[in-house]
Computed example of a mutant assay.
Amino acid sequence: MSDMWTGEKVRLRGVEPGDWEGFRDLARHTVDVRNSDLVEPPRSDESFRSWTAERAGRPPGGAGFRLVIEALADGAFAGTSTVGETDSRAGRFRTGIAISRDHRRKGFAAEATELLLTYMFAEQRHHKCEVEVYAFNDASLALYQKLGFVEEGRLRQHEFLAGDFHDVVVLGITADEYWAAHPRPSLR
């Protein structure tokens, strides 16, 4: 396809003010939030509206950014993907992903991550992507390993969640490792 932001199942796009309900729904399930972030007190709908509107007004790209994962079949909000902690000198960045409950196990997370990696490696000249995954998050560990990420280390008892300390697994993939399994974008 000629649009590097569109795969067979999903499209990555900028955040729109109307996406607030999708972000709110991602935050509704404690177990889901705990798998990818830290549990916070409940927020009001207005808080989600203003947070989303502020992000929708940000210019694209930059050192860190957030994209919406949209299901191609129906245009639904399927999740979000982020880039952060970029280091242009060393060519590293971190990414993360969250998929809504009704869009899981459909290949959306893998495809969205591949689209993002292709952009960061082919257009932004980054050399390495890193992710941190809670050791109890088997689904995310399996996703990243399937995509070719390699476990680089474990931060022992690094985060406090659900009344106990938990390990964080650090995984990484280099551009060379990624290109060995994925085609480079075409200039035409």
Rank of each mutant, 00 (worst) to 15 (best):
L117T: 03
F136A: 07
Y144L: 10
T80D: 05
S100Y: 02
G91A: 05
D164I: 05
F160P: 07
T95Q: 12
G163F: 07
A139Q: 12
A98H: 07
V170L: 07
R89P: 06
E152M: 03
T86E: 02
F108K: 01
K106E: 12
D164K: 08
R94Y: 12
F93S: 06
T118F: 03
H126I: 10
F149N: 07
I97K: 00
I99W: 00
R89N: 07
M120Y: 09
A162H: 08
G163Q: 15
Y144I: 12
L117P: 07
T113G: 03
L161H: 03
H126C: 13
T86G: 08
Y134H: 11
L115K: 03
A139G: 04
G107Y: 11
F121K: 07
A90Q: 09
T82V: 07
Y144R: 05
L161I: 06
K128G: 03
T118W: 04
H103M: 09
R105Q: 07
S88C: 12
S100G: 10
V150D: 02
L171H: 03
T80S: 14
L141F: 14
F93V: 03
A112Q: 04
R92M: 07
E152A: 01
T95W: 08
R156W: 15
E151I: 08
H127F: 14
G172H: 02
G148W: 02
E130T: 10
R125K: 06
G163D: 06
E114I: 05
E132Y: 10
V169E: 05
T118C: 06
V83L: 08
R156I: 13
L155G: 10
L115W: 00
F121R: 03
L155K: 13
Y134I: 03
R101Q: 09
A109D: 01
K106W: 04
A90I: 06
G153M: 12
C129N: 04
G153D: 14
Y119P: 00
I97W: 05
V150Y: 01
L147P: 06
E85I: 02
E123S: 10
L143N: 05
Y134K: 09
F165G: 08
T82P: 01
S100N: 03
E114K: 09
L115M: 02
A122H: 09
R104V: 01
D167K: 08
D164E: 15
V133H: 01
G96Q: 03
A109Q: 05
S100F: 01
V133R: 01
Q157F: 14
H126Y: 15
S140T: 11
S81V: 15
E159F: 05
A135K: 09
Q124K: 14
V131H: 01
E114A: 08
H158M: 10
D167A: 11
N137M: 08
R156L: 12
D138I: 12
R94E: 15
R154C: 13
R104D: 02
Y144S: 08
L161W: 00
E111A: 09
L147Y: 08
H166C: 06
D167E: 13
L171N: 02
A112W: 00
F136G: 04
A139V: 10
A142K: 15
V170E: 10
V168Q: 04
G84C: 15
H103S: 05
D138F: 11
F136P: 04
E85P: 01
E132Q: 14
